[in-house]
Write a protein that binds this DNA or RNA. Structure first.
Length: 888
RNA sequence: GGGCGUAUAGCUCAGUUGGUUAGAGCGCUGCCUUCACACGGCAGAGGUCACAAGUUCGAAUCUUGUUACGCCCA
């Protein structure tokens, strides 16, 4: 006997272990089945499971479990990425607690420490994924720093370099002065900050007492100014173009240039130019061949190019000193308040400096072209489609990708420098030595580049590096390209675009996946993004502990409608926990009524209307769910399954089956038991992708005939011929009749204990047959004593003490003599008459419109006419009932 | 400034090519401790589908504009 409620915590761990041990998650490269492949977006190795993970991995698991059940050879490739900056920070923080810096240890020892940390703590997220019930092929788990993946990285780097698509250049990059590394544009967050415009007067050379005024939000950069720019058409400055001014404090003679970058509308119309510390100024500098003076060191302190008094001081300290000194010189014209954008590092949260350094770049423009085309011509499909625009937008304006990072944790760039700075890019040191020897004609000392690669460089290779590339493995042949990439929109630039670029470049133009399903962001119930600082983070593991994993999964699935963010409230999870209990109790009911699974049960062969009906409904439900999953309409899949299980199977089928179980028609009883057991099995199958634990547990507990795991069973293949429209009509009629009687009883406050007789007037033969077939069920569910079919001649005799309702045009008298409340009944009928009257009016209007009749399709017109006739019929009957009551 | 998106019941949201008397869950009201389930059952209230104009026989659905809000990029 099953327990009274489902207890998720008891079963989840046990079942997960069983699944994992069984090997049911594994892909089978040797099999002949068609593959279904999802590359799991590798979570950050330092990460722990948050709601976004819970959503994305639930959806992926649904796709994977569903496709596995349909018989495909399914590979869900798991793994983590090494998260260069984040991981290095974690380990540095640990060392910091013991007052040790990474420099104390040295590079080699430090990297060893990171590996130690990874071995101990790196499994957190993958263990949490197990709690979510995910079913990836764990033995294939990969890490971006694995030897295999690292050799793929080296190969890609060297190849791209030899193709001229990776190059070394001195350019402005976003420099993080806290983490002491370059970061990519995407890792910079622009924040709106209240600041000031300081207006400085620069004296004009050779014109005593004349000045040109420039405004700046970053006064300290004036130490690196090498020009002042004005707009070429700006009449105020025509005579100054080509002249020089003297940079105060520094004393440098700098040119006044004409450049369209200067905006005459802004400030004074003149702008100071600091090519080494501003991206726009850098471009201006290139146009006018200006000197680039770098005034900062790695820590964003002022370096030795500046006057002595500022050297070694922090940039913001120097800002204050410069302002004070300018004021002292009488060169500070005014200070304006302003709001402007300031770049911050998304990891370090310090102000990022544009900084002139030697870095490695990928020429992304070349790689972006085929990657764009693949989406344009439909080889890759974004779902929902509108995300294509986001993708194109970025691809069209793509910038060189700075891939070098001044970190110790990551893939060290395979470039070796000779004594004169010439470098040799090779996959191994031996090859580099050989290349150097060929170049210099002798052995020289080589030093490997100290920089490592951006983490995204290695994750861009994920769709093929995990399959063994550059080796031509069986896996690579079978599982590339994958079927779908499932991820959030925030990662389209970081990762999706780069995987497409790298995949196509290294896999003979073959795309890495066919679909990109972009899901929503999970927000809190007020629509706020969850963040630690706001304190509105909901931990998925807490929800799992409280409500069970299946409840959480079902909630996320039901809310995962395309194109809309998910606002998550715990009350929703509670609701789906209740759903799990409902399923559990339905199983219990089946068990108590000896609904045993029958070998070789054929749903097509069932005889009773009730059983034929539910069999058809199962076929419909299975189709709804599979169709929805295949179209990434997860909310429809969840709603369809929920509606069927609760609204159809529990609310109707099981209730209607009760009189059969308690009756004495042995054949009907046996058939209904067998059918109920079969339907319940189908429910377990249909729900399994979304709610794997409870379904697997019930599979184990409900029948000894259930051998093997539910997760390894085949998805229901139910033909449409199980749907019998005649039976459906018959059942619908019975359900409508029950509904109407219940409505009457409820409005008249007839107590449930009172069983009442009902009379149907002039019912058609078909109707009589249908209701006779469902007699016991109608009696039970509507608490009816007897059902009698009468002719119109007997209406007067039954009408007294009865309430009338109309079902399909047939008057139904419900004898509620003792409970009748004439006023209430009049009100009830009036309301119904009013409602249907309004409808009739609207229909008449529609049908008397000649243009509707002549232009609308014939079948629509016919349908509308039929609806009007039905409504008129019902109105007449209700009116008769009302008149009768009024006469009492 | 450019782009994308959203406005439907008290709340959170469905509503796929225009043809419904606009749905669900939660919440709310009334009744019911009926032999699976009170994490339950039955019944019910609640919406001029943001606003305005247009296309159409017909608009929550298509077009344009207005308003409000959100996100991304500059």
């Amino acid at each position: 006997m099953l327990d009274k409620t489902y207890n998720p915590t008891d079963v989840e761990n046990k079942l997960y272990e069983k699944w994992e041990k069984s090997g049911a998650f594994a892909a089978h490269p040797e099999s002949k089945e068609n593959p279904y492949v999802i590359m799991m977006p590798p979570p950050n190795v330092t990460g722990s499971l948050h709601m976004g993970h819970a959503l994305t991995f639930t959806l992926q698991d649904i796709l994977v479990r569903y496709n596995r059940m349909t018989g495909k050879d399914t590979l869900w490739q798991p793994g983590t990425d090494h998260a260069g900056i984040a991981t290095q920070m974690v380990v540095e923080r640990q060392l910091g607690a013991q007052n040790v810096t990474r420099h104390d240890l040295g590079r080699e020892k430090f990297v060893e420490k990171v590996w130690e940390w990874k071995e101990e703590s790196g499994g957190t997220i993958t263990n949490q994924l197990r709690r979510l019930g995910t079913s990836p092929d764990w033995p294939r788990e990969r890490f971006t720093m694995d030897e295999g993946l690292s050799s793929a990285v080296r190969k890609v780097f060297v190849t791209l370099h030899k193709q001229g698509l990776i190059y070394r250049d001195k350019r402005l990059v976003n420099w993080d002065p806290k983490l002491l590394t370059a970061i990519s544009d995407l890792e910079v967050v622009q924040k709106e900050v209240k600041g000031h415009y300081w207006h400085f007067k620069y004296p004009i050379e050779g014109r005593e007492g004349e000045f040109i005024t420039v405004a700046t939000t970053r006064p300290e950069t004036m130490l690196g100014d090498t020009a002042v720019a004005v707009h070429p058409d700006d009449e105020r400055y025509q005579d100054l173009i080509g002249k020089y001014c003297i940079l105060p404090i520094v004393g440098r003679r700098i040119r006044i240039v004409a450049d369209e970058y200067a905006d005459p509308e802004k400030g004074s119309g003149a702008v100071k130019i600091t090519p080494a510390h501003d991206f726009n100024d850098f471009e201006v500098g290139k146009r006018h061949d200006l000197e680039k003076i770098n005034i900062l060191d790695d820590h964003a302190c002022i370096n030795d190019t500046a006057p002595e008094e500022y050297r070694g001081l922090d940039r913001f300290k120097v800002r204050d000193l410069i302002i004070a000194r300018m004021d002292e010189f009488g060169l500070l014209e005014k200070i304006e308040d302003t709001v402007h954008m300031v770049p911050y590092g998304d990891r370090s949260n310090v102000v990022i400096e544009p900084y002139l350094t030697d870095q490695w770049f990928v020429n992304a423009e070349v790689l972006a072209k085929p990657a764009s085309e693949a989406v344009e011509d439909g080889r890759i499909r974004f779902v929902p489609k509108n995300w294509e625009n986001t993708y194109f937008e970025w691809m069209r304006n793509i910038q060189p990708w700075c891939i070098s990072r001044q970190l110790w944790w990551g893939h060290r760039i395979p470039a070796w420098f000779g004594p004169d700075g010439t470098f040799f890019v090779e996959e191994t040191e031996e090859e580099a030595i050989a290349a150097a020897k060929a170049h210099y004609g002798k052995d020289v000392e080589l030093n490997q580049e100290t920089d490592v690669l951006d983490t995204w460089f290695s994750s861009a290779l994920w769709p093929f590096s995990t399959l063994g590339w550059p080796e031509q493995t069986a896996e690579l042949g079978k599982y590339y390209p994958g079927d779908v990439l499932v991820t959030g929109f925030d990662i389209i630039f970081f990762w999706v675009a780069r995987m497409i670029m790298m995949g196509m470049h290294f896999m003979d133009g073959q795309v890495p996946f066919r679909d990109v399903y972009i899901h929503a962001l999970v927000r809190d119930e007020n629509g706020q993004k969850m963040s630690k600082s706001k304190g509105n983070v909901i931990d998925p593991l807490d929800l799992i502990s409280e409500y069970g994993c299946d409840a959480l999964r079902m909630t996320l699935t039901a809310l995962a409608a395309q194109g809309r963010d998910i606002k998550l409230a715990a009350s929703r999870v509670e609701g789906y926990r209740n759903f799990a209990t409902k399923i559990w109790n339905a199983a219990r009911f089946c068990e108590m009524n000896e609904c045993n699974v029958i070998d070789g049960f054929d749903p097509k062969s069932v005889k009773t209307t009730l059983n034929r009906w539910i069999v058809g409904k199962v076929a419909e439900a299975a189709k709804t769910v599979s169709g929805s999953i295949e179209n990434y309409r997860f909310n429809d899949a969840a709603a369809g399954a929920y509606q069927f299980v609760w609204g159809t199977f529990c609310d109707w089928y099981l209730e209607l089956a009760k009189p059969v179980f308690m009756g004495d028609d042995a054949d009907a009883k046996a058939e209904t038991r067998a059918t109920a057991a079969w339907v319940f099995d189908q429910i377990l199958l249909i729900l399994h992708p979304v709610m794997p634990f409870i379904t697997e547990e019930l599979w184990a507990q409900t029948s000894e005939k259930h051998t093997g795991l539910l997760m390894a069973q085949a998805w229901p293949a139910l033909a449409d011929d199980l749907i019998d429209t005649g039976v459906e009509a018959e059942m619908d009629l019975a359900l409508r009749l029950i509904g109407n009687i219940r409505g009457v009883r409820s409005e008249m406050n007839v107590p449930p204990s009172a069983e009442v007789p009902i009379y149907l007037v002039d019912a058609t033969d078909a109707m009589k047959a249908a209701i006779a077939a469902q007699e016991a069920q109608v009696k039970r569910l509507a608490r009816v004593a007897v059902i009698e079919f009468i002719g119109a001649d007997r209406v007067e005799s039954v009408a007294k003490g009865a309430i009338q309702t109309v079902v399909d045009g047939v008057p139904v008298f419900v004898s509620v003599a003792d409970f009748i409340d004439i006023a209430a009944e009049k009100a009830r009928l009036e309301k119904e008459i009013d409602k249907i009257g309004k409808y009739i009016k609207a229909q008449e209007g529609k049908l008397s419109n000649e243009r509707f009749v002549s232009r609308a399709p014939e079948e629509i017109v016919a349908a509308e006419k039929a609806k009007l006739a039905d409504a008129r019929d019902t109105l007449t009957k209700l009116q008769e009932g009302f008149d009768r009551i009024a006469a009492m």
